[in-house]
Nucleic acid binder design. Sequence first.
DNA 1: GTCTATATATAGATAGAC
DNA 2: GTCTATCTATATATAGAC
Lengths: 196, 196
Amino acid sequence: MSGTDTARRLVEATQELLWERGYVGTSPRAIQQRAGAGQGSMYHHFGGKPDLARAAVRRSAAQVREAADAVLAREGSARERVRAYLEREREVLRGCRVGGLAQDPDVVADPELRAPLAETFTWLRGRLADVLEEGRAGGEFGPGLDTAGTAAAIVAVVQGGYVLARSAGEPGPFHEAADGLLALLDAHAARATPAS
Amino acid sequence: MSGTDTARRLVEATQELLWERGYVGTSPRAIQQRAGAGQGSMYHHFGGKPDLARAAVRRSAAQVREAADAVLAREGSARERVRAYLEREREVLRGCRVGGLAQDPDVVADPELRAPLAETFTWLRGRLADVLEEGRAGGEFGPGLDTAGTAAAIVAVVQGGYVLARSAGEPGPFHEAADGLLALLDAHAARATPAS
DNA sequence: GTCTATATATAGATAGAC
DNA sequence: GTCTATCTATATATAGAC
């Protein structure tokens, strides 16, 4: 079972390094050191860096989807669940474990590496669209709300918010963008239920 | 003058490579080959890769600001200028020359490399907020429009739209997010001038 | 200003002992 | 399963000739 444990540690170390340094910035040597595993060990369990990266990216993508679903499945209005999703984000300056990899040309060029990214964002947009649709059906938003487009905008604001925050060196811009989007969504809610 | 020309070609080659492969993925060797310059030439004009990268990032940032201002300074309503900015984007799958660098840890860790990114997005958010403010003053939007927050959301949707598009392998998600945001903004416009 | 030679470190992996 | 030795290529630069 020690072997299985080593394989798991190698994948986890790769996940961390991919998050921090991207694919091109992650070396087999760094993975081995962080996992506390030797070279022979790594090449015994995995075919090499691309093989390890594929396992790591699949796992990170699954974790991101799970974390998002945990927030979106909570009780509350659609507006409240969207707000919770936008404000759930932590460690803004670290960026997104999955979205950050889209910047790497070697990732987008490899179908097996890119697939988990595509699946994650397709799923997330659909999940958010479902939440918005529930809200619209319940009269929370006006009937004209473009649920699919709004869902795509929400996901984009989060991913772009990371870019703005990392560029600024502080998390402020992430929250400004998220709050700005929520305020726009509230205008739609106000139309459905005019203020007293 | 040949030296000046070589220096310019080195900077331009570095700009292209930073856009395509990021900082960590760009080698001095690749820069020299793309610029058609020798090693001695490169190290005569620049102190090394970080020095060259600083010049290249500053130039790319200035070009991005110039291109954005060209669109935002055009004639038309605020809504129309925001739409023009969102739809101006080309070559979506290549991403943003400036925002893409925010993913690189070596870029955000170097104050001189990160500064042009911070300046670009601070300027862009302010420029968009000004456009929205003009629209609000002219009665185009309701008085409750959060111009600064909306501006941040617009910039984030563009940067995040690139992430979604590159993840998907096709530009569709970029445009879906942009259209979704515009539709939300239109709800605010509709409140200012109720539909007949 | 540009060229070629040289130098150290790391990337990424294979081979074979244990 | 893990370890050490070894290997080729590249990253990133410096030195000094021309």
